[in-house]
Design a protein around this nucleic acid. Structure first.
Lengths: 225, 225
DNA sequence: ACCTGAACACCGTTCAAGT
DNA sequence: ACCTGAACACCGTTCAAGT
């Protein structure tokens, strides 16, 4: 019943693309520390060593996975002004990192960046340059934006709190061993704000992103455009 | 020649403090993934299982290590205004995270925070509250500051670039496999700015921290203090 | 050409035993 | 009371072999 003739066993031949896709979706569910070469081979129903024909080693696999993730981030559109374009990029980045939480912390540190990675950086820098930023201001803006974006994503994902009920459970867990009156400011903050109806940490993202963008706009204006 | 009488082998008895100190200094040199229970036991010259009398497991060890790191961060001093105090905290945090790079990414995600952790958060929140911030503004400010601080620290440490020579080597490594003229904006940025004399990525930290503090001050003023 | 199996040097942790 | 040794179920990766 198999249409493929080139494999007696009946599964599709192993390709780099198939390895990459399986690795990413597996990491999406079990995290980076749960992604082992042996486990990935199991998902693909091949012997562990079969993977090594398509990736040099685990690091090379991760390099390639990160480039797929970069490819999912929207590039700044030509029409919009820089602030709108950077806002869209920031929101897209957050969406992508939420889908692939294992990627946070690896995005900025690849010594062997792929093409999607380089294309992304080229496009962002190009957008800021054509808006009139000089190279020093590009460096300031890019460092500020990405520190904020990656830092927020890391915090959000590591807290692993999605619903207000999660938040309540976490807060109870965290403070249970301690007399709360030793930490009155923290207690007030958690009780009156973080655990209040309607508060969701994720809502801070857009607020902070807009503050960072405003700060960049102002710093640029102050530097004598 | 040993002064201690309670151990025939001659080393000091294993204590939680000794385990913690060894774990932190070992992680400082080999990183978190290089810190194995077996390796740590080797450093302390005990059998791996001896550690388990003083820590419940590896996660519990890391929880305790993080609390030691929190204890190294300066608390906001009573006298200074909020902006000065937050600036000092930001600079201290960067120093501490540079000493203990393995701690970045773990600081905000402990489900079992220690006393130094709680005391730190209580002091920061207290400083902002007593400066007049309402709880919503505290949440905005804290999220912005820590996203920036942790995000920058993560980027800086992961790049592992300390000298301009490192930067040149990294840039050459990274772009070697690609035709640079495909990425003209990136090429210009790297050549004319990042690799120019006098540029150091680490200098962006203070600049960005001041922009974030200015943004918080302005947002607070706009919200009608 | 592509995949496999056995082997090596590692992990964290449990359990039963030593002193 | 405190530490150890053997064992279990894992790792990434090398090397020699299968089809």
């Amino acid at each position: 019943m198999t249409t493929s003739k080139n494999r007696a066993s009946g599964h599709a031949p192993l390709t780099r693309e198939r390895v990459l896709r399986a690795a990413i979706s597996h990491a999406d569910t079990v995290g980076l520390e749960g992604l082992s070469m042996r486990g990935l081979a199991g998902v693909l129903k091949v012997a562990p060593m079969a993977l090594y024909r398509h990736v040099a080693n685990r690091e090379d696999l991760i390099d390639a996975m990160i480039d797929v993730v970069f490819g999912e981030v929207v590039l700044p559109s030509g029409g919009a002004d820089w602030k709108t374009a950077m806002r869209e990029r920031g929101l897209s980045m957050r969406d992508v990192l939420t889908r692939h939480p294992w990627a946070i912390g690896l995005m900025e540190s690849r010594r062997h960046p792929g093409q999607a990675n380089l294309r992304h950086h080229d496009a962002v820098i190009g957008k800021l340059r054509s808006a009139g930023f000089d190279v020093a201001m590009v460096a300031h803006a890019y460092s500020l934006l990405d520190s904020y974006i990656y830092g927020f994503a890391m915090t959000q994902v590591r807290m692993a709190v999605e619903t207000p009920a999660d938040m309540t459970a976490m807060a109870n867990d965290m403070f249970e061993p301690f007399p709360l009156n030793e930490y009155p400011n923290l207690a007030e903050f958690v009780n009156d704000h973080v655990m209040a109806a309607g508060y969701q940490y994720v809502d801070e993202y857009g607020y902070g992103l807009d503050r960072v963008l405003d700060a960049i706009e102002r710093a640029w204006a102050d530097s004598g455009s």
